[in-house]
Simulated assay, not measured.
Amino acid sequence: MFSHIMIPVDIHLPPEIRKALDVAAQMAKWQQAKVTIVSVTGTQPGDVAQSGTAVSAELQTIVDQLSEQSGADVEARNIHSVDVAAEVDGDLTRAAEEIGADLIVVGTHAPRITDHIFSSHAGYLAKHAKVSVFVVR
């Protein structure tokens, strides 16, 4: 049913992302699907964790864990953004199209008061992506 699953990740791995990775691993195993992990990062002054080397190392750790857990072909893609907060939603939507994903598995938090004013990243993807979006809470 699904042949290519995209998982947007925050490399700091909040609990919502970990849960989405677990769900995606099970789906990939069941569907025998390829998985692409996509991260959007930017360079912030003084933020060592956002260096290209650090981001690559963090993504490779996630790739290795997910590959072992699912048995799937897993790769990572990092998108560099000048303004992550403003560009992340559009970057993720475009990435899904560019890589040919047919499912996005994304983690989200329980709704907060601000979510009634501004859409969450998962909400944006669910509204705007041209492929199926599985939101994990």
Rank of each mutant, 00 (worst) to 15 (best):
A24F: 05
Q50T: 14
A129W: 08
V88E: 07
R18C: 01
A96I: 11
H80F: 08
F2P: 00
V105D: 09
A28K: 04
E68Q: 14
I7W: 00
Q60R: 10
A129R: 03
M27Q: 03
A122D: 09
V82F: 08
V131I: 14
P45K: 12
A86H: 14
K29W: 05
A96L: 09
H12Q: 04
V106I: 15
A57K: 07
I11G: 01
D83F: 00
L92R: 06
D102E: 08
D83P: 00
P111R: 15
H121T: 15
G90Y: 01
D64A: 14
P8S: 07
M1T: 15
A86K: 09
L92W: 09
V9Y: 00
R137H: 11
R94Q: 06
S56H: 15
D73M: 02
P15L: 02
F134K: 14
V40L: 11
L66P: 00
A122M: 12
G90F: 02
D89G: 09
A24D: 02
S132Q: 05
T93V: 15
K19P: 04
G90A: 11
V136S: 14
E87M: 10
Y124E: 03
V48S: 12
S51E: 09
I11M: 10
G100R: 12
I17S: 03
V40H: 13
N78T: 14
Q32R: 13
H12I: 00
L13H: 03
A110M: 08
G46W: 13
Q69H: 12
Y124H: 13
W30T: 14
A49G: 12
A101H: 06
S81N: 09
T41D: 11
A72L: 07
Q31M: 06
K19G: 02
G52Y: 01
V35Q: 01
F118N: 03
S70G: 05
V48D: 05
K127G: 04
